[in-house]
Amino acid sequence: MTQQNFKRNCLIAATLAAFALPLVVRSATYLHILIILYLYAYMTTTWNLVGGFAGVLPLGHAVFVGIGAYTSTVLWLQYGVTPWIGMLAGGVLAGAVGFLIGKPTLKMRGAYFALSTMAFVEGIRVMVENIDMLGPFNLNGPRGLNIPPLAHGEVNFWAFQFATKEPYYYIILTMLVGVLFLTWAISRSKMGFYLKGGGEEPDAAQALGVNVARYKVMAMVLSSFLTAMAGTFLAQLTLFIYPKSVLTLDLSFELAFIALIGGRGSIAGPIIGALLLRPVTEFSRIYFSSTLPGLHLIILGVVLIVVMLFQPRGLTEPLTNFFNSIARRFDASAREERK
């Protein structure tokens, strides 16, 4: 087995194991935790498309989660449009908003982009909290929207509602694998190289004739579109959305933190970040929320600061090195056998 083959086999084994997991994990609670874990891994991966590859710092990605959640829910409640189409509609709307934010600010200094993304998420939250009707669309202000759960016999694929957790599990896992594949394809494409060049050495890339700002805007639009799809999924999973649940700075920051701790700009980074940090959040919420409120946020903040100071490329780098050394050993032993 060569090093390359070993890595590919590991990847395939991990994917198959993830798909087979519901055969072993029967508890709805644990499945739900896994679903949330994958959802975060998905959202941080889409964050990483712009935050990692384009080398800027979006701090308002919750705005796209919110747009995705609200668009599909409004279309379903008022017009009976299946959330699958709502998902795409939300994505398109979010992409347009992403363009609106990115176009003027992505050519400015990093801080301005970070600030304007924050202003957008706060501004849109204020807007949704203050209006009940946006034109013909009922957003129901701060009270949010309730998706009435269907009876067991009526649930089906088109309604995006299921009686058990397994379908949600497979949907989000498929979405995650898909977005990971897309990230991988982009990182090997011309766009990926331009983005990386523009993120690391903007002046050099500019001098070589790369329109850095244009590729950053493209990454932003794509990231917004994909993040909004997660919003629709979240709405269908929880069946209840309100401004303070999907349009918050907290969610925006958490996504950024997870991706940054895992390793911005690497494909595995957001996954590793979510795998390491989501359990910390879940367990401290379950066990310490009454005695030590906010503990998981302190942990998150401290880990972020320490990682940024000592391992600024994220935790993925040392883990990858460790994995590579194992892969190399396989390679070496294979060579021994051949002799």
Partner: peptide, 26 residues
């Protein structure tokens, strides 16, 4: 103007706010 400063100070924001919550209560 390293962008890492924004990240670290945002982390500091979370640590300080939640430490205050832990120590002084809500």
């Amino acid at each position: 103007e390293p962008i890492t400063v924004i990240i670290v100070t945002t982390g500091l924001w979370y640590v300080l706010d939640n430490l205050a919550l832990l120590v002084f209560g809500p």
